[in-house]
């Protein structure tokens, strides 16, 4: 197997969507288009109870074939990179499982292989995770309650780029925020291989009490398809696009 390209949307939010279409449906659509959706719910460090509506976080990621986690601000950095890497492994494993089923028949997955064979397969999965190309579109909720968490978010994104750029495979990142009055989401960083200095990224903050998570996710998905590097999503339904031919 050649190293391919993985596409992910990483949604950072702290509340429930209350505007527009259902984010869970949009996430399912994204998955269908070969884009994995990961969601991180960011809690205040002083918050002791999980606020209502954050169950949505898990449902969106599940529908989007990704990973979700609800965390306190202080562990955001480590969580962001962990969730991203875990989702990568999950996607690659999914593809490997599909191939295994073709070879070994229905119902066979990595977990069901005898240890000796499993040992070789997991090495292959790991090699692919190290070498594959990765595109991450970060979608940050900048509604009022998120404002004071944005410095931590910025730090976590820098940290994410630090982790991923240690890989052999190449990376592309872009950052969007929502809500935006005109276009639902606003691009603050266009596709770049590194999130080095992202000062002032969240300077223009949106206000207002609405959280259009669904429409924002959909716009993010469109943003993915508009990417010039990207070769048409129509035939790219496989979450794992092979490159290099």
């Amino acid at each position: 197997m050649k190293a391919g390209r993985l596409k992910q949307i990483l949604l950072l939010t702290d509340g429930c969507s209350n505007h527009g279409e259902d984010p869970i449906a949009v996430a399912a659509l994204a998955r269908n288009q070969g884009v994995t959706v990961n969601v991180i719910g960011v809690l205040d460090d002083r918050q002791n109870e999980k606020p209502q509506g954050l169950e949505e976080v898990e449902s969106i990621a599940e529908a989007g074939g990704g990973v979700s986690q609800i965390v306190y601000q202080k562990s955001l950095s480590q969580t962001v990179q962990m969730v991203t890497r875990q989702a990568m492994t999950q996607t690659i494993q999914g593809v490997v499982n599909k191939e295994l089923q073709e070879i070994l028949g229905e119902g066979k997955s990595i977990e069901e292989l005898p240890p000796a064979t499993r040992s070789e397969v997991v090495e292959v999965v790991e090699d692919l995770g190290e070498a594959c190309e990765l595109e991450v579109l970060v979608l940050v909720d900048t509604s009022a309650s998120m404002h004071h968490k944005l410095p931590t978010v910025k730090e976590a994104l820098y940290d994410l780029s630090l982790s991923l750029n240690a890989r052999t495979g190449s990376n592309q990142f872009s950052i969007y925020t929502f809500p935006d009055v005109k276009n639902t989401i606003r691009r603050v960083i266009k596709w770049t291989p590194e999130l080095g200095e992202i000062n002032g990224v969240f300077s223009k903050l949106s206000s207002g009490g609405y959280t259009p998570t669904g429409p924002a996710l959909k716009e993010a998905l469109y943003a993915f398809t508009e990417k010039p590097l990207f070769r048409g999503i129509q035939d790219g339904e496989d979450p794992y696009e092979e490159t290099g031919f």
Partner: peptide
């Protein structure tokens, strides 16, 4: 060596302290 560090703990991680990359 040469790959990305796959597991780390912030306190011991040079990336966390701003002292370099997470390359193995």
């Amino acid at each position: 060596i040469g790959r990305a560090i796959k597991e780390y703990t912030e306190f011991y991680d040079r990336g966390y302290w701003g002292f370099g990359s997470r390359k193995a």
